[in-house]
């Protein structure tokens, strides 16, 4: 019997970008590390993502964007999370996000941005460490 709190992660692709290879590979890697991964599919609006996070009571949200629309989508998602009282969820980003934009995203409350070439183990460790602290 497992009394541990199982880590629940929402893997979401906001915006119109359909490149979901990274999101899917990461979703599988997280599952194989023992987490429960809720995958939403592509073309998610910020509202849909935040509603899913709320209902699914996830510990972490992983947002994958390759289209360059992060400048609009991240702030909107962070704003909605705060509105719904979900400010404590660990929010992570991945995809193609220029280094120059990272400080601004972190200011909004995004914990970390993982760029191309990041190993899934790095991400898994990051989630475990940051959730156990929280």
């Amino acid at each position: 019997m497992n009394q541990d709190k199982r880590i629940r992660v929402l893997v979401a692709k906001p915006g119109l970008d359909g490149h979901d290879r990274g999101a899917k590979v990461i979703a599988r890697a997280l599952r194989d590390s023992g987490m429960e991964v809720i995958y939403t599919g592509i073309r998610q609006t910020p509202e849909q993502i935040v509603d899913a996070a709320l209902q699914e009571d996830v510990d972490t949200i992983l947002l994958s964007i390759l289209s360059g629309a992060h400048g609009f989508l991240f702030p909107r998602i962070m704003e909605l999370l705060k509105e719904k009282g979900l400010g404590d969820i660990l929010v992570l980003g991945g995809g193609i996000i220029p280094e120059d934009d990272v400080p601004e995203l972190k200011k909004l409350g995004v914990s970390e941005i993982f760029g191309p070439g990041m190993s899934s183990q790095t991400l898994i460790n990051y989630i475990r460490e940051n959730l156990s602290q929280g």
């Binding site: 915006g15 119109l16 970008d17 073309r43 609006t45 289209s67 360059g68 629309a69 992060h70 400048g71 609009f72 989508l73």
Partner: peptide, 10 residues
Amino acid sequence: PLSQGEVGKV
């Protein structure tokens, strides 16, 4: 509305 942030990007 769904175009927000995506216009002219890719």
